[in-house]
């Protein structure tokens, strides 16, 4: 995975799926690091309102980011290390299961607090 890619075209806003094809999140932002050779390397994919807010920009974007930070109790957005990424195509496929990267705190919260309480939540629709 050392080829140059245009992050804007091929990474940002793409759907991240895990190795089973289950949805993880969107690439809301990327974490870049400048290495010794002067080039920028992607070190992680960032997800969630904490990452998307700054990209939306303006007062609205700031509001999104700060509201999330208050609710989540932290300012660092969800992070998927680049080492977990298996391939980049129409979607970004991870080499691991989504519970390993654990960026879906909101989903888990929603599931445990609200959805699980409703009868039939474990049943596959028929």
């Amino acid at each position: 995975m050392s080829d140059a890619i245009d992050a804007n075209l091929e990474l940002l806003d793409r759907q991240i799926v895990d190795h089973d094809g289950a949805m993880v999140a969107k690439v809301d932002d990327v974490e870049l690091e400048e290495r010794d050779d002067g080039r920028l390397h992607v070190t992680a994919l960032l997800t969630g309102p904490g990452a998307l807010g700054p990209r939306l920009g303006g007062a609205f974007g700031n509001m999104v980011a700060s509201t999330w930070a208050r609710l989540a109790g932290r300012t660092e957005p969800g992070r998927v290390s680049w080492s977990s990424v298996a391939s980049v195509g129409i979607v970004v496929t991870l080499a691991v299961d989504r519970t390993t990267v654990a960026v879906d705190g909101f989903e888990v919260w929603m599931r445990d607090r609200i959805i699980a309480a409703i009868p039939g939540s474990k049943v596959l629709p028929k």
């Binding site: 991240i16 949805m23 999140a25 989903e107 599931r111 959805i115 409703i118 939540s121 474990k122 629709p125």
Partner: peptide, 21 residues
């Protein structure tokens, strides 16, 4: 689909909690 959540009727509701919420 905008935010990248799991969605749809082919999964159990608890696996698409935000969608169903």
């Amino acid at each position: 689909q905008y935010l990248g959540w799991t969605w749809g009727k082919s999964v159990r509701p608890r696996d698409a909690a935000r969608f169903h919420a």
